[in-house]
Design a protein around this nucleic acid. Sequence first.
DNA 1: ACAAAAGTGTTCTAGGTACACCCATGA
DNA 2: TCATGGGTGTACCTAGAACACTTTTGT
Lengths: 189, 189
Amino acid sequence: MPLAILLIERGGSPYKGMWALPGGFVGPDEDLDACAKRELHEETAVDAPFLLHFANFSAPDRDPRERVISVAYLALLRSDLVVPNAGSDAAAVRWFGTDELPPLAFDHARIIEAAVGSLRARLDDGEMIFRLLPERFTLSELQAAYEAVAGKRTDKRNFRNKMSGLRLVRETGEMTRGPHRPARIFVRA
Amino acid sequence: MPLAILLIERGGSPYKGMWALPGGFVGPDEDLDACAKRELHEETAVDAPFLLHFANFSAPDRDPRERVISVAYLALLRSDLVVPNAGSDAAAVRWFGTDELPPLAFDHARIIEAAVGSLRARLDDGEMIFRLLPERFTLSELQAAYEAVAGKRTDKRNFRNKMSGLRLVRETGEMTRGPHRPARIFVRA
DNA sequence: ACAAAAGTGTTCTAGGTACACCCATGA
DNA sequence: TCATGGGTGTACCTAGAACACTTTTGT
């Protein structure tokens, strides 16, 4: 499953009918993290437990209506499990594979580029990747998540060696069942 | 020469008479980078050719007067050469060693902590460190700059080996003169 | 001659990469 | 027995860290 981006179809002008990142204005009694979480929920009905700030976008004319500074956040979620619902201001919401992105409103294409770069740079921190996995997972599932985000394949043995060095996961002692050899089940360390 | 921070003494309330980071409000026709550069110049008469954004600070009550979101930037300059002059709103301006910081207004102590961390994390990018050096420099000068920022000593041979790997500098063929063995003069690659 | 700073190599360890085959299960 | 995915080890290379002495100049 490739990396995908959650976009909303704009219901109003400017850029009416084009796709854009969810977002909105910060309230007087919330910090930026809370704002990002709230706006995402209001516009897509998606809850992202962990959001990461990665850049600001502040060119004076990036919104034709008025001066807007965007504080950009990213989250990692399982697009196969998270079903978005269009909320306020959004005509529609859906996931787009990174290779099938539509034309985007404002400077949002640039924002997505920056987001993917930041995400890949932080993959080994071990904070984000587990958002793509159930609580209990196999090493093959973990590797698939890594590869989806990194956008490239990795050797299985090298991946497992690296993981045992990073100490991000802990074995449960339990095994999967299925029409093939059982796999060890791990949890986050 | 240890790492130092440029602070202004606040001329008005709140926190009148306390020390704080320079800063101000973004104008309608400038982006955040330009704002940071302008505010620094207005308040301290210092020109920083390269500013790096490292974090936002947005707790709703961090300024007792009104809601203020701070977009924090850092620059690296030679505190021995850059002489600040108090400008608008500032009663005084001066450099403080990181080990002799006064009590700070607002949440600026936290901002400085974050800044030093970000700076150290990016030292090897090769973007910042040359701000501390003249155009032509010796490897010993470069190493001294590294050590000042990193806050710790480094082995000379290891430092030089690392540098020749990073390819950040180029030899000029010229040498220094002085009451000791001449040193090769380098420039940025 | 001496004071001051420049310059130089080797060994060890850890982490990254390339690479191919056998194993356990359910159907 | 076959299809499916799980699981394993070695050799090589590179980067980082520890470590001490000789060289060149001006005074």
